[in-house]
Design a protein around this nucleic acid. Structure first.
Lengths: 185, 185
DNA sequence: GAATACCTATCAAGTGATAGATAGATAGTA
DNA sequence: TACTATCTATCTATCACTTGATAGGTATTC
């Protein structure tokens, strides 16, 4: 892995743990054994790094979701694996979805990072919308979009609160309740 | 309003906008026309201030919820007004529920603030649990608790994502979808 | 005269950013 | 082939700014 990739790898983990504010050049540098000034060679400003991280995160998600939709016939199974993506960071040192934690820092983000966060939300909502339509859980596009946004929001919320409690079970119980109520197919 | 109350008032608004990290003595001080050092007289450390804010927030919520449950017969109406509490900060300069935004900063919080955040979550979940049981939406306490946590999480999530988009309508649509699906009675 | 509530002045730590140097690789040219 | 120029990737050193905190002074009030 070259330096730029290492910076992004460590940077993502840091941001998932502490948000944009906790992302700092010195810690990243020391984690990979270079000096903080060297990071500016790869990412001139912190905003550039944040933007790259959020964009990469959205791209990775898009790629993963494409795989997911060919892997499962049943939408219920598909969304179980979808939810598992958001469960993973919690058990990995109580981290969060990068874009969830960045969304909470909305006001402090440089515009380009904010845009990338919205791109991530769009990737998810659009994918969910298409799945709901395809599985005929919803018939109108507008309704499917709103349902998709609700599903995404509820999962992010479950993650946020489970993290606040430091208790993954809270995430699982919330997801069960979403399914039980019929919010999630 | 005395100075201590002013500090807490301004401090809460600041924290709701930018989180614990954005809470800073100098900005609070200049907003109310004193010097930052003077805040230490009322709150020796930043942790003390954060703790006081989160505790006060939980107390206010508890008081409000007590009023809410006597005001409404129908649980559906009651929870509509409940949801409106979380809508309010969004239209007030795209702010968040104090404890939602603090939860996202979990790792950076002093332990006493973290505890206060959990107290707020408990206040909400316990109240929702009792409402669900009383309205016989759920019969077992365990199920009611899980449903309550799910409702709370989903509302916090709707707020987080709506804020990320800077779009209150996203909150409204998510809440409509929660109701439509039957997650919210 | 003690307690209250503020002030001035200052510190130490952390952080993003920049300037300028350097070692090594690469490519163009005589 | 040998020389030279440029590029890449890093370093050292340093700056400017923000921020929480503290020491010690000063009115005002009880």
């Amino acid at each position: 892995m070259d330096t730029k990739e290492e910076i992004m790898h460590v940077g993502r983990l840091m941001a998932q743990a502490g948000g944009y504010q906790a992302l700092n050049f010195r810690d990243i540098a020391s984690a990979i054994g270079i000096k903080s000034a060297s990071i500016h060679y790869h990412f001139p400003t912190k905003g550039d790094l944040g933007e790259a991280l959020a964009n990469r995160y959205a791209e990775d998600m898009a790629r993963f979701l494409k795989e997911l939709q060919v892997k499962h016939e049943d939408i219920g199974e598909m969304l179980k694996e979808y939810a598992a993506i958001f469960r993973a960071p919690l058990i990995n040192d109580n981290r969060m979805c990068l874009c969830g934690i960045l969304a909470s820092e909305h006001d402090q983000l440089p515009p380009e990072v904010r845009k990338a966060v919205n791109r991530f939300i769009d990737v998810n909502v659009e994918w969910l919308t298409d799945r709901l339509l395809k599985a005929k859980v919803e018939r109108s596009r507008v309704k499917a979009e709103r349902r998709a946004l609700a599903i995404f929001s509820s999962i992010e919320g479950a993650q946020l609160i489970a993290r606040g409690r430091g208790d993954v079970a809270a995430f699982d119980h919330a997801l069960d309740a979403y399914r039980g109520a019929g919010l999630l197919p």
